[in-house]
Computed example of a mutant assay.
Amino acid sequence: MARVRKPVVPGWFAETDTGFRLLGTRCGTCGAVFFPREDFFCRAPGCDGTDLTEVPLSPRGTVWSYTDGRYRPPPYVSDPEVPWQPRTLVAVELAAERMVVLGQAAPGVPVGALRVGMEVELVPGVLGEDAGTVWTTWWWRPVETGGADGTYGAVGAGGGRDR
């Protein structure tokens, strides 16, 4: 029996006509964009808008900050007997939306491969699996320069914010 693929958080990301994207909402009154999505009222201070439209967010951004997570992240329930691997966490600035989105780095991307200002792209990932379900999520992966050695994109000015 094939396992069902389900998003860890329904409505936060999807495969769209423009590829895999995070889903946010835009306020029709003030134009503010939110992630995670908002379905009831504008979260912008001073705006009382309720006309919210789902929008796919930019699939690329730049590393704003990052860290090496060496603990089981809350609030996820996890069995302490099950092996667990630390993950690199990445805060990515989406310039068009004027926001920073947190996520995990794709497997195989160590903290040492990241730099503030580096371009990264959104990719689909798997957070976990059980007998009947594959739990999907999103990951950030550095944009490769296209070299045969698998090196990553250019590093921007750090501004002292790394790690």
Results as ranks from 00 to 15, higher is better:
V33C: 03
L102Q: 07
A96Q: 12
R72S: 09
F20M: 03
G46E: 08
T16L: 06
Q85G: 11
V4K: 13
R163K: 13
G31F: 05
T136L: 07
F20I: 02
T88Y: 01
V101R: 00
G19C: 06
D162Q: 11
V55Y: 06
R87Y: 15
C42S: 05
A2R: 13
C42E: 05
D39T: 15
R115G: 14
R161M: 09
L52T: 05
T25P: 00
T16I: 05
A131S: 14
W12N: 09
G160K: 02
V8N: 12
V134E: 09
R70P: 05
P56L: 02
G103T: 00
D68R: 11
C30V: 04
T67G: 15
A2Q: 13
G49H: 00
P75G: 12
M1C: 12
F41I: 14
T53W: 06
L114F: 00
Q85K: 15
P142E: 07
L89T: 06
R3L: 09
R115K: 10
V55C: 02
D39K: 14
D39S: 15
T88Q: 01
R43V: 10
W64I: 07
T62V: 13
L89M: 13
L23T: 03
G117D: 01
G153S: 11
T136E: 09
V92P: 01
Q104L: 10
R43S: 13
E93H: 10
T29Y: 08
E15A: 10
W64L: 06
D51N: 09
Y76G: 13
W138K: 02
V8R: 13
V63D: 01
L127I: 11
D39C: 12
D149E: 13
V109G: 00
E81F: 13
T25W: 02
P45E: 11
D48M: 10
V4D: 10
A131L: 12
L94C: 03
V123I: 08
A32D: 08
G156K: 01
D51A: 12
R161S: 06
Y76K: 14
L102D: 06
P110A: 12
P83M: 10
V33S: 04
C47V: 03
R87K: 15
G19Q: 03
G160N: 01
P73I: 11
P142M: 08
T137G: 06
P75F: 07
E129S: 09
A14R: 07
